Each structure stands twice: as structure tokens, then as C-alpha cells.
Deep mutational scan, measured.
Amino acid sequence: GPMASDKRPRTAFTAEQLQRLKAEFQTNRYLTEQRRQSLAQELGLNESQIKIWFQNKRAK
């Protein structure tokens, strides 16, 4: 629909990254900035991508 703007492409996470994020989520529903930074480095992701993933996951 018209609401779907092309400005922010959805990140396609790899299965491996998703597995890691899910495991982290089961341990911590809320990430500290430090955890998020190390996860971002570990997974080669953007911190904001991880932050948003957690927000979306909590919203469900």
C-alpha cells in the first residue's frame, strides 16, 4: 500500500542471525546498550536493526 515507504528497507536477517536474536530474546527481553553493541558486532548488524527487531518481537 501507499503506507509502505521505500525509505527503510526491511532487513533480511539470516537464519543464523535470527537464531541468535531469538536466543538472546529468551534470556533478555530488553537489551542494554552494551549487549546491543556486542550483538551488532558479533552478527555484523546495525544496532538500530537489532533494537527494532527487539521492539517488534516484544510488540507481538
Rank of each mutant, 00 (worst) to 15 (best):
I50S: 00
E33C: 09
N28R: 05
L45V: 09
Q37L: 10
Y30G: 05
F54N: 01
A59T: 08
Q49M: 11
R36H: 04
D6L: 01
E42L: 05
R29E: 12
F54T: 01
R29D: 08
T11W: 14
T14I: 02
F25Y: 08
T27V: 10
W53H: 02
T32Y: 02
E16I: 07
Q26H: 11
T11Q: 08
E16Q: 10
T27A: 09
L31V: 05
K22D: 12
T27I: 12
Q26L: 07
S5V: 05
L18E: 13
G1L: 04
K51I: 14
N56H: 08
Y30V: 10
E24H: 02
R58V: 08
Q37N: 08
Q37Y: 10
R35S: 06
T32P: 07
Q17Y: 01
R8W: 15
A12L: 13
T27Q: 12
F25I: 04
M3G: 15
R10N: 14
A12G: 09
E42H: 03
A23Q: 11
Y30S: 07
A59G: 08
R36S: 12
K22H: 14
I50A: 00
I50R: 00
Q41T: 09
G1C: 07
S38A: 13
K57C: 09
R20A: 07
A15W: 09
L43W: 02
K57N: 09
F13P: 05
L21R: 00
Q26C: 11
R29K: 09
L45I: 10
L43D: 00
R20P: 00
Q26N: 13
P2Y: 02
S5W: 00
A4D: 15
A23H: 09
G44M: 06
Q17R: 02
T27C: 14
E47H: 04
K60S: 09
N28K: 05
A12S: 09
E16Y: 10
Q34W: 06
Q34N: 09
P2L: 04
E33Y: 08
Q55Y: 13
Q34G: 09
M3A: 15
A59I: 11
S5M: 02
E33M: 11
L18C: 09
K60L: 09
G44P: 00
A4M: 05
R8C: 15
R58P: 03
D6F: 00
P2H: 15
N46Y: 07
Q17C: 03
D6P: 04
L18N: 05
S48M: 13
R10V: 13
P2C: 15
E42N: 04
T27E: 14
E16H: 12
Q49T: 12
G44K: 11
T14Q: 03
Q19G: 12
F54M: 03
Y30A: 05
E24L: 04
F25C: 03
L21D: 00
L39Y: 00
G1R: 02
R58G: 06
T11K: 11
R20F: 04
A23M: 11
K7Y: 06
K51V: 12
Q19P: 01
A15I: 09
D6A: 05
Q55I: 11
K57E: 12
R36K: 10
S5K: 05
Q26P: 01
A40D: 00
E33I: 11
L31K: 01
Q26F: 07
K22I: 12
T14S: 06
Q41G: 06
G44W: 03
W53T: 00
E24S: 03
R10K: 14
R36I: 14
G1A: 03
W53L: 03
N28C: 10
Q37V: 07
S48W: 14
A15C: 13
S38R: 11
R58W: 07
P9Q: 06
L21Q: 00
L45M: 08
Q19T: 10
E24F: 03
L18S: 05
E47G: 05
L18P: 00
R36V: 14
N28L: 04
L21W: 00
P2M: 05
Q41V: 12
Q26A: 13
L39K: 00
K7G: 14
A40G: 04
T14L: 03
R8T: 15
Q37E: 06
L45N: 00
G1N: 06
I50C: 01
K7A: 14
R8F: 15
G1E: 14
N46T: 09
E16D: 08
E33D: 13
K51E: 15
S38V: 14
L43G: 00
K60G: 12
P2K: 14
Q34M: 09
T32H: 04
I52H: 10
W53N: 01
K57Q: 14
F25H: 02
P9R: 05
K60A: 08
Y30W: 12
Q41Y: 10
S5G: 13
T27L: 12
R10C: 15
T11N: 14
L18V: 09
I50W: 01
L45H: 02
L43K: 00
T11G: 13
L18T: 06
A59N: 11
Q17A: 05
K60T: 09
R58C: 08
L45C: 10
K57I: 07
N46Q: 12
Q26W: 06
A15G: 07
E47L: 04
W53E: 01
G1W: 04
L39Q: 00
I52C: 14
P9G: 06
